[in-house]
Amino acid sequence: MMNILTIMGTKIDEGSENYKEVMNAFNILAHRTAQNSVYSSVGLGFLTLTPEYKKTLKYLRELVCDLIKKNPSLKAESDEYEDGKQALVNLAVKAMKQGLFTASDVEIESFTMIAASYETSAIVVYSALVLLAMHPEIQERAFEEVRSVFPDGITSVEYDDLKKFPYLDMVIAEALRLAPPIPYIGRQAINETELRPGVTIPKEMQVIIPIFELHRRKELWGPEAARFNPENFLPGNIAKRHPCAYMAFSKGPRNCIGVRYAEFTLHVLLITLLRSLKFSTTFKYDDIVFMPNVTLSYKVEPLLSIEVRA
Results as ranks from 00 to 15, higher is better:
residue 199 V to G: 06
residue 140 E to H: 12
residue 39 Y to R: 11
residue 3 N to W: 03
residue 308 V to A: 11
residue 177 R to P: 10
residue 93 V to W: 09
residue 62 E to T: 11
residue 255 N to F: 07
residue 287 D to H: 13
residue 277 L to M: 13
residue 97 K to R: 15
residue 97 K to Q: 12
residue 146 V to M: 03
residue 171 V to N: 07
residue 243 P to C: 06
residue 7 I to K: 03
residue 208 I to D: 07
residue 212 F to V: 05
residue 219 E to I: 08
residue 25 A to K: 03
residue 271 I to P: 00
residue 76 A to P: 01
residue 147 R to W: 12
residue 271 I to A: 00
residue 186 G to E: 11
residue 85 K to C: 07
residue 209 I to D: 10
residue 220 L to V: 04
residue 15 G to V: 08
residue 110 S to V: 08
residue 239 A to S: 14
residue 248 A to D: 02
residue 223 P to R: 11
residue 229 N to F: 14
residue 26 F to T: 02
residue 29 L to E: 10
residue 54 K to I: 10
residue 48 T to P: 05
residue 2 M to K: 08
residue 7 I to W: 00
residue 221 W to H: 10
residue 149 V to R: 00
residue 17 E to G: 15
residue 12 I to G: 05
residue 222 G to H: 09
residue 270 L to F: 00
residue 189 A to N: 08
residue 73 S to F: 15
residue 161 D to T: 02
residue 235 P to E: 14
residue 13 D to F: 03
residue 294 V to F: 13
residue 151 P to L: 02
residue 43 G to R: 03
residue 301 E to G: 00
residue 212 F to Y: 15
residue 228 F to W: 11
residue 51 P to A: 08
residue 261 Y to W: 07
residue 90 N to H: 15
residue 21 E to F: 01
residue 167 Y to W: 10
residue 32 R to N: 10
residue 49 L to S: 12
residue 180 P to W: 04
residue 166 P to C: 13
residue 29 L to P: 03
residue 273 L to C: 04
residue 248 A to Q: 01
residue 216 R to D: 12
residue 128 A to T: 14
residue 77 E to L: 14
residue 255 N to S: 13
residue 240 K to G: 06
residue 253 P to I: 10
residue 215 H to Y: 09
residue 222 G to F: 10
residue 214 L to G: 05
residue 147 R to P: 06
residue 267 H to P: 01
residue 129 L to T: 11
residue 129 L to Y: 08
residue 109 E to C: 03
residue 152 D to N: 15
residue 49 L to G: 04
residue 183 P to E: 08
residue 256 C to H: 01
residue 303 L to W: 02
residue 135 H to Q: 07
residue 81 Y to A: 15
residue 35 Q to S: 07
residue 79 D to Q: 11
residue 203 K to I: 01
residue 144 E to C: 12
residue 14 E to G: 03
residue 99 G to D: 02
residue 59 Y to F: 15
residue 207 V to E: 09
residue 108 I to C: 04
residue 198 G to E: 08
residue 255 N to C: 07
residue 280 S to I: 02
residue 301 E to M: 01
residue 109 E to D: 11
residue 159 Y to F: 14
residue 177 R to S: 11
residue 74 L to N: 15
residue 11 K to L: 07
residue 83 D to Q: 11
residue 63 L to W: 12
residue 310 A to R: 12
residue 164 K to V: 07
residue 129 L to C: 09
residue 155 T to G: 09
residue 249 F to P: 00
residue 38 V to D: 06
residue 82 E to P: 05
residue 154 I to M: 13
residue 52 E to F: 06
residue 34 A to S: 12
residue 266 L to H: 00
residue 211 I to N: 07
residue 63 L to T: 13
residue 132 L to K: 03
residue 174 E to T: 07
residue 200 T to I: 14
residue 103 A to I: 05
residue 221 W to F: 14
